[in-house]
């Protein structure tokens, strides 16, 4: 029972902070909301008994992505005291309608459908099993992703370092 209560707390936290990301009026607040939302999702992975994934989520999103975003915010800083422009475009109301519609459809389909359930009470996923699957069954994909990462790093460095020559 306690687990369910905790789950709902986490769910509310995630949805609340995710809403914070999209409606907050300060980019910095949005970034911090994003970080909390992502950490909450790491909590969700713990509920799903995939602790390894939760830690990966914390390491990559909390330690790297959120920091990158904050760093980018520092570099593209908003003028303090200057007149703030609205962070939302004029299309925001329509976007809201679309998003609410989408949410309604997704939630309805999730709740209405009877999902075939193979596992009722999942056990913790052993780490050794994950590494086997990751490196053996998905070995080629793993290498492709590695190459993708390398290319992304090189590309990011080239983009960021280029001097204003043109």
């Amino acid at each position: 029972m306690a687990v369910e209560v905790l789950w709902w707390l986490f769910a509310i936290l995630i949805v609340g902070t995710a809403l914070g990301v999209v409606v907050s009026r300060s980019v910095i607040h949005a970034a911090i909301f994003l970080l909390v939302a992502l950490a909450g999702i790491a909590g969700m992975y713990v509920f799903l008994t995939v602790e390894f994934l939760a830690l990966v989520q914390l390491l990559i999103y909390g330690g790297a992505v959120a920091v990158l975003v904050l760093l980018a915010l520092m570099l593209t800083r908003q003028a303090t005291g200057g007149e703030r422009i609205s962070l939302n475009g004029p299309q925001a109301p329509f976007a809201a309608i679309a998003a609410i519609g989408l949410a309604a459809i997704l939630v309805a389909s999730a709740v209405v459908t009877t999902w075939p359930r193979l596992v009722d009470d999942p056990d913790a996923v052993p780490l050794g099993r994950i590494s086997e699957v990751l490196f053996e069954d998905f070995g080629a994909t793993f290498i492709l992703v590695s190459i993708l990462l390398l290319v992304a790093v090189v590309g990011a460095i080239i983009l960021a370092r280029q001097e204003d020559a043109e």
Partner: peptide
């Protein structure tokens, strides 16, 4: 766990800086 959580340490510093 230790180094995943330690990574979050930066966020506080960035928040202070920003």
């Amino acid at each position: 766990f230790v180094f995943a959580v330690l990574g979050l340490n930066i966020v506080g510093i960035l928040m202070a800086g920003l």
